[in-house]
Simulated assay, not measured.
Amino acid sequence: MTDAMTEFEKMRAGLPYSNPDPEIFRLQAEASERNRRINETAGSGIDPAVRRQMLRDALGAFGESFFNPPIHWEYGKHIFVGDRCLINSNITFMDGADIRIGDETLIAPNVMLITAGHSLLPEERVITDPETGAFRAGISINKPITIGKQCWIGAGAIILGGVTIGDGTTVGAGAVVTRSLPPRVFAAGNPARVIREIPVAG
């Protein structure tokens, strides 16, 4: 079954795939050009509605939200952003798998959302020529990231593939989130752990 799939199709299905791959490179190059055009709008005085439409054309979905360029993505089309979100500058999306951001979520500068990963076993990370030992390809696997509604992701946090962050949760600055977090907690550290629950106001 997987032999009939392209490397891109394997990636999107959450299966191991090899890179470099011509189709993947082409899609990344096209996405990079869309990314460049949006980043050029920083400080340009562009009508926010025009930039919002550019983002809707480049991403999987983009609601009534705000990006502060520059931003960086791998494909763009696998990023889904809800309404009333504020996503600050220098965010990086490695979006081989879907990245979904719920309504009213705030993301501080320099956050990285990384769906791509590799096996811990070095023999499973790299394919070499059995006769010469020359490098032939690297093996990756992508897992989705879901950030719920009304979350706050602090500056410099890193969210790894396979993570779901529950509604209303705050992730501290510089945290590395390797496992899913429940709703309405404050989590921080490397690896991130739950520090305390967040009570309902009033």
Rank of each mutant, 00 (worst) to 15 (best):
N190I: 12
G174E: 08
G102K: 00
R52E: 14
A157R: 01
L120M: 09
G14T: 13
I71C: 13
T178N: 07
P16T: 12
S32V: 01
N19L: 08
V50A: 14
E9I: 13
G189M: 06
D3P: 02
A49M: 13
I71H: 04
A4L: 12
M112Q: 12
G117C: 02
V185G: 04
V171C: 07
G102L: 08
N19D: 13
M11D: 05
N190P: 00
G138V: 00
A97Q: 02
G166H: 06
I71T: 09
A116M: 08
F80I: 06
G102W: 00
A192T: 08
A116E: 06
E7V: 11
K10L: 12
N110H: 13
F80T: 06
R37I: 13
E74I: 00
R100S: 10
E124Y: 04
S65K: 02
P69G: 06
S140M: 03
T92F: 10
G82I: 03
N39P: 12
S119F: 05
R179G: 01
A97T: 10
M94E: 03
G138C: 05
A137N: 04
P130F: 05
P69F: 07
D95M: 08
A31K: 09
G162F: 00
Q150D: 11
V194I: 14
K10W: 10
F62K: 01
N35R: 15
Q53V: 12
W152T: 07
T115R: 04
N88I: 04
D98F: 08
V111C: 05
D21C: 15
R56N: 07
R51N: 08
G154H: 01
G156H: 04
G156D: 02
W152K: 07
S18Q: 14
G133R: 07
A116H: 05
T164L: 00
I101F: 06
P16A: 10
N88D: 12
R51M: 14
S65D: 02
R184N: 09
G96I: 01
R26Y: 11
A29C: 14
N142H: 11
G45K: 13
I147S: 01
I101V: 12
R51K: 14
G166F: 06
W152F: 11
I114S: 02
P48C: 12
V200F: 03
E30Q: 15
L121A: 11
R196I: 06
V185S: 06
P22Q: 08
C151W: 03
E123W: 05
A108C: 10
A4F: 08
N68P: 00
I38F: 15
F8P: 01
G14S: 12
I147Y: 04
M94G: 03
F93S: 03
I127H: 07
M94S: 07
N90Q: 05
T6F: 06
A137M: 05
Y75M: 13
T2Q: 11
I153N: 00
I195T: 03
M54E: 14
I46E: 14
Y17Q: 08
W152E: 02
G96Q: 06
E7R: 10
I147T: 04
I141R: 10
